[in-house]
Structure formats: C-alpha cells, structure tokens
C-alpha cells in the first residue's frame, strides 16, 4: 500500500455543484415533485380503506369548528341586518339645551359612520305624540311641558364595540341627559356571535392539533414500512429534504382531502338545518346568505393541507433523525 493524497472528492464536488446549477437540476427537482405527487395519490388508491378512514376522521374533526364558525357568521349577519332595519337609540337632552346647540349636535350625530339618520322630537311634538297615544287631548295643555327634547338615532350595521363607543361619546356630551339602551340587544347578539366566533377558533386550534396527530400517526405507520427505503436513500446520498418530500405530499394531500370532505359535511348540515335557521332569521326580519360551498371547500381544504404538511414535517423530520443514519 503506498501513501498518496489524491483529491478526487473535491473535483467531484465541483461536478455536483455545476450540475445542481444547471437546468437539468431544476427539471429533476420538478420531476421529483411530480413523482412524489403521483406516488402520494397512488398510495391513497393502493390502501383506500386506511387512507379514507384517516381522511374521514380529519373531515369530522374539522367539520365541527367549521360548522360553529359558519353559525357565528350567520348570527353576525342577523345582528347586522336587524340593526340596519330596526336599530335605534333615543337620546334625551337636558331641558336647557338651545335650538342651535341641538342642531349642531344632531349634525355631529348624522356624521357618525354607524348612524343612518336621526330625527329630532321637540318637547311640544313629544307631548302631542303622548297625548295622541294615550288619547288624552288635555295633556297638550300641561304647563310647563315636562318632556325633554329627544333625538331618535337610527343605527346602521353595528357591532357591539361601535354601539358602546357611540353611546359613550353621546353620554359625555354636556347636552345629553340620558340615553335609552336601544343598542343593548345588538350588543348581546354580537356578544353571542363573538362567543361562537372565539369558540370556533379555539376548537379549530384544538382540533387542528388532533388533525396533526391523526395524520402524524398514519404517516408514522407508513414510515415504519418505508424504513428500509429511507435507509437506502440515505446510503446513496439522499438528503433529508429529498427523503421528506414524498411524506410532505402524503400529509398535504390527506389533509386537503380531509378539509374538502369537512366542507361537504358542513354544507350537508347547513342544508339539513336550512329550514329552521331561515325561520329563525325571518323572525328577526333578516335573510340568511349561507357561505358558498366553493369558498368553504377552498378554506377548509387549505387549512387541512397546511395541517397535513405541518404534521408530515414534524413526524418525518423526527423519524428520519432518529431512525435513518444520515
């Protein structure tokens, strides 16, 4: 055995680099992505029962927060529409309020974004209305008139926050003696909607974790079966990214299909519940527009895809690190 120091590895490294720079490398990369995609679909078809069991589980897990989220949107819509149709607030002014002060206050009110319009009821008009409503004509002769000037404010598409903010601004005005709590019901409705909204996001977070575990468990079983293949990949120079790629496709496609199926379940539930929901909405003078299935499918599909991809990243990296000699 003679001593020698040839440096072939350096030379071949340069070759690999130049290859990687070329368009062949790009086309090979794209080819590998296409192949991973096809293989992932093929694996789904090859084991339809286990694959679809996972997909259906994901769909059910994602359907619940999705359904609650849709309900929250409907409640918001009902609140907004009802506010638009009927929402009003009565602002009672102090007896010493002057006409020009009242007019400028009313102008300010009309400029608020959540105010559709307002109407001033003077003490005389108020007394006349009261006398008419009570059917007591002599009521108009009361002196001095005990009623204050009142501005009836019609609200437009409110949320709980904007009602509260407007009420606070009105209350702090020195011309205002008191206001009726006309927007209180909207606030309650919005609070219910907010509760459902938050609940759905929490559930989505919680169930999202469940999806990650469900997909992760399926992938772990698959990885056990492919352990030898992965070891071989490592032996012939496969990078961890290369080995991980097929798994990412598996996770993402499973998640995507699960999310899309979840949207079908939600749409089915909404269709089944459409009649009672619409009756309820009609009672509040509102009309429900159900979120379009296409949008819902896309949204849940993307959520499923991201969760599946994320799960594959965690499980795959961990498995390759622990089980494959890199």
């Amino acid at each position: 055995m003679s001593r020698a120091s040839p440096n072939n590895l350096t030379a071949t490294k340069t070759n690999t680099k130049s290859l990687a720079r070329g368009e062949h490398a790009l086309s090979a990369w794209a080819h590998h992505h296409r192949r991973c995609f096809k293989d992932a679909l093929w694996r789904l078809l090859k084991r339809p029962i286990s694959a679809w069991a996972t997909i259906v589980t994901i769909a059910i897990v994602l359907a619940l927060p999705g359904f609650i989220m849709t309900l929250a949107t409907q409640i918001k819509q009902i609140g907004g529409m009802w506010a638009s149709e009927n929402g009003q607030m009565n602002v009672y002014l102090i007896p010493s309020a002057q006409t020009d002060q009242i007019q400028s206050f009313q102008t300010w009110l009309n400029h608020q974004s959540v105010v559709r319009d307002s109407r001033l009821i003077t003490p005389q008009e108020g007394l006349h209305e009261l006398a008419k409503r009570l059917n007591i004509d002599s009521l108009t002769d009361i002196q001095p008139n005990p009623l204050p000037s009142v501005i009836v404010v019609h609200l437009d598409r409110l949320t709980g926050d904007t009602v509260e903010s407007l009420q606070h601004q009105i209350r702090t005005n020195p011309l205002v003696d008191n206001i009726s709590e006309g927007g209180e019901w909207i606030k309650r409705l919005q609070e219910i909607s907010l509760f459902f909204d938050r609940l759905s996001w929490w559930l989505l977070g919680l169930f999202g974790l469940t999806v990650i575990f469900v997909i992760g468990n399926t992938l772990r079983l698959e990885l056990q079966e492919r352990r030898e293949e992965l070891s071989l990949m490592a032996l012939i120079g496969g990078t961890s990214r290369y080995m991980l790629r097929p798994l990412l496709y598996d996770g993402a496609i499973t998640g995507l299909l699960g999310g899309m199926l979840a949207s079908v379940i939600i749409y089915g539930l909404l269709t089944a519940l459409a009649a009672p929901i619409n009756n309820l909405a009609t009672n509040y003078g509102a009309h429900i527009t159900v979120i379009t299935p296409l949008l819902m499918t896309a949204l849940l599909g993307i959520i499923g895809l991201i969760l599946g991809w994320f799960s594959a990243q965690i499980i795959g990296r961990n498995f390759i690190k622990k089980s494959v000699k890199l």
Binding site: N8, L9, T10, T16, G237, T239, L326
Partner: peptide, 22 residues
C-alpha cells in the same frame, strides 16, 4: 479523498455518499 470525515458536517454526507457505490 483527503477529507477528514470527522470534520465534515452532516449536511455534507449526502455529497460524499454520491461518490461511493455500495
């Protein structure tokens, strides 16, 4: 090829292995 394997980083192993048939 003159490269000390203990000084190589993990991400360099794949390039080394592509030069070796087993």
């Amino acid at each position: 090829g003159g490269h000390d394997l203990q000084k190589m980083r993990h991400h360099q192993y794949p390039k080394l292995r592509r030069q070796i048939g087993v």
